[in-house]
Design a protein around this nucleic acid. Sequence first.
DNA 1: TTTTAATCTAATTAT
DNA 2: ATAATTAGATTAAT
Lengths: 172, 172
Amino acid sequence: MASSLAAVTAESRPTFSIHWILGLEMEKSGNSVDLHRPWTEMGAEKENRNKRVCSKPFHCSEEVNSPQPSSSWYVGRRPRTAFTNSQVSVLETVFQVNCYPGIQLRERLAQRLDLEEDRIQIWFQNRRAKLRRSLRESSLQLVQTTVNDLQAGNKVRDQLELTSHLLVSDHE
Amino acid sequence: MASSLAAVTAESRPTFSIHWILGLEMEKSGNSVDLHRPWTEMGAEKENRNKRVCSKPFHCSEEVNSPQPSSSWYVGRRPRTAFTNSQVSVLETVFQVNCYPGIQLRERLAQRLDLEEDRIQIWFQNRRAKLRRSLRESSLQLVQTTVNDLQAGNKVRDQLELTSHLLVSDHE
DNA sequence: TTTTAATCTAATTAT
DNA sequence: ATAATTAGATTAAT
């Protein structure tokens, strides 16, 4: 609420400082206000993009030429959430019933498990991906098995054909 | 915090009620604990997909029992956030500088604009998609213009060729 | 009708 | 192994 008020105060003014908005973030990048849109140069440097030497684009825009993967002062990614066994247990149970929980159920789960709603959302997305993956794999395995069985069947048939051919030849 | 305690209490018990977990959500679906995984029956109903009966998995299961697919969808969806002009203004300004804000900047923006961090994340995702779309369109238009120019150039060249041919023919 | 917030998948990155 | 992020495609609210 207090932060909201501060924001509104600044927002009502047409010109506001980018430094004020970015706060501490600006200290590290200095005054350079360079755009970071790696996907505009798609074909050119795939390596740089894939490597994502700097998951914090802001600070590392100059690092495109000098990659320092192990700059540990900050990583732009949200720290990995470590779900407890109990939390996963509940989530798995709910997933069995409904793997596309709506906002109400997600909020409820967030409250009951003391997690943010978005963590729930992401968990279900990843869980569905996992299930799809396993289903794909098992169906692939089914195909493999079927192919193998067919091949085995063919071998038997070939054996039979060979035998019958020999018998026929024997008779002729 | 209180909800956390409640959750832990229930979690520590190996057997917990699915109804307790789902709470009010269960009222709608009754006692039937039917799985909802529309993508497991992918190949089976291609017609439905083409007919656009339900392209979202969510309505599919609901639609079986309820005749109002549209009303059942938006109850499950988070209510659309209405950003104020001021909020968008700040977001746009930050976007000019960094369209891939890390977790710190996202949290800072969330605090200052009185929004959830995930709303910020989603806003930037949609904003990047919009920018990419506009870039694609403008580059497409560039191609169109180039093609048109080339065609116009060809016409001029054809005119010149025709003229010279007539002149040559005239001399022969 | 247009714009865009929310949701989803698929692939990937990174812990 | 899986949480987090991205692009891209849709859906649906304004």
